[in-house]
Write a protein that binds this DNA or RNA. Sequence first.
DNA 1: CGTTCTCTTGACCAGCATCAAAATTTGTGG
DNA 2: CCACAAATTTTGATGCTGGTCAAGAGAACG
Lengths: 246, 246
Amino acid sequence: MFELKAASPDCAARRAGGGCAICRARPFSLCASVPDADLAQLEALAEPVILAADQTLTREGDPAAYVYNVTAGTLRAYRLLADGRRQVTDFLFPGDFIGLAGGEVWADSIEAIEPATVCRFRRADYRALMTERRELEAALLARTGDALAEAMGRHTLLGRRSALERVAAFLQSLPGSDPLRVEPAGIVRLAMTRGEVADYLGLTLETVSRSLSRLKALGAIEQLSLTQLRVERPDLLAAVAEGERT
Amino acid sequence: MFELKAASPDCAARRAGGGCAICRARPFSLCASVPDADLAQLEALAEPVILAADQTLTREGDPAAYVYNVTAGTLRAYRLLADGRRQVTDFLFPGDFIGLAGGEVWADSIEAIEPATVCRFRRADYRALMTERRELEAALLARTGDALAEAMGRHTLLGRRSALERVAAFLQSLPGSDPLRVEPAGIVRLAMTRGEVADYLGLTLETVSRSLSRLKALGAIEQLSLTQLRVERPDLLAAVAEGERT
DNA sequence: CGTTCTCTTGACCAGCATCAAAATTTGTGG
DNA sequence: CCACAAATTTTGATGCTGGTCAAGAGAACG
C-alpha cells in the first residue's frame, strides 16, 4: 500500500525503481521502439510532469523547447480564432506524442482536461537521441505518417456530414475499443465537456447534447453517467456514422 | 524550338540531358535536399509519369507500391462515403509529395484535374535510398511534420466557420502568393471546378459560387476568367477569412 | 453553330445556431 | 450527511445560414 501511494501518478516515468519499464503507456507509445535493454538511456532524458486539471502544457505561439509523451489522463489542443471562437484541434490520450509536427513554435495551446501526466524531453536531447538510435527516428517517421493519415481522415469527419454523423463518428474514435487502453470494451469515457466536443466537431454544445439524446433514443448507446457511455450497438453506431438512413 | 517540343511536359524528370537538374519543381520539393552532385543516384530511381486530365494515379484501398512527387499540374485526392458523397481531402500542386502517410494501401484516390506530370519511385527503392542517405530521411520527416501541421490547420478551416470564411481562406491557401510558383503575384488560378472546391470545403457548389460572388461584390477579388482570379485586396480577403465583421 | 458542361442566380426549405429556461450533477460548507 | 450554490447538461422555441430544387447564362468542344 505504501508502495502504491508513491506511485500514484500512475504512469509517470523515472519513478524510483520503476521508470519507463513499468510505464503503462509504453506499449502503445513511441518508446515501445526502444528495447528494454536500452531503457536507461531513454530514462536519463525523460522528465515526468504532473498536470492538474486545466493546467497549461503549451501555449500557441510559444517556442517549442520540449516534446512530450502522454502517459496518463486526457488533454485538449486548441487554437483561438480572431473573434474568440475556440477550435479544438485534438484530444490527446495516453501514448500520444506531442511535438510530431516539429515547428519551432507551438501551433496549438494544450491543456489538461483532467489530472494528467506526461513525459517531457528537451527537444534538442530528443533529436540527438534520434541521431544516435536510428530505429527511433524511423519509428517517429512512421508515427508522424500515422498522425497525418488520421488528420486527413478528420477532414472527412468535418466535411459534408450531419451533426448526428459527426457525434457518432467521434464516439467511435475515442479510446474504448482499443484493447490496450484502460476502459472496458464498449465503455466510452467522455473526459471532455459537451462544449469541448462541440468545439472539436464544429457544432454547438446544444447540438452535441441533442445528438447524444438521439443516439440514446435509437438504442445505439446508453448513458451510465454524464461521463460514461456504453455502446449498446456498435453496428448501429457505425451505420449512423457512415450516414445510413434509419 | 524543336528542343521545347520534346520538353513539353515541363518538369518531367529523367528527360534526355535534363532530368532532375532542370526540374522546375525541385527547388520546393523533397529532392531539394539531395545535393546536385548526387542527382544521378536519385535520377536512376525516378520514373516520369505523364497524366491526362481525369486520369487516375492511385485508387483508395489499392496497395501503395509507389510514392510520387508532383512536378507539374494539379491533382485531387478524395474519398467516397458510403452513400456516394465525395470528400475531397486535398489538392496537390508541383512540389507536393504523395505517400508521406506511409500506409500499405492508399487512403485516398488521386486523379489529375488537368494534364499533370509526376515523378514515380518504387516505395522499396525509396526506402532503401533513405536508409543510405540519412539527410533524405530527415527531410522526409520534416516534410511529413509540415504536412501534419497543415492538415491540423485544415481542421480549423472546416470547423466553426461560415461558408464565406471557408472560401476566402481557401483562396489564400492556393499557390499564388508563393514566389517560387508559376503564377504571377496576386493571380490565383482555379484549376478545379466549383464542385470540387465544394467537396473540399464541405459546401455545395452553389454556395461556393455565391461566396465567390460576394467576395467580388466586396471588392476583395476580381474575376478575370472562370479559372483566373485576381486578388484585389489581400488584406480584405484575409480579414474575411479570419471572420472579421464587414 | 449547336451540344454539352459548368457556372450563376433565384425561390424555398431544413438543419443547426441562437436564445432561454428547466433539470441534473458537482462541489462546498455547515 | 444534508442543503445550498455553481456549473454543466438537457430540452424547448425561434430564426438564419446554407442546402435543395430549378431555371437560365456563359464557356468549351466538336
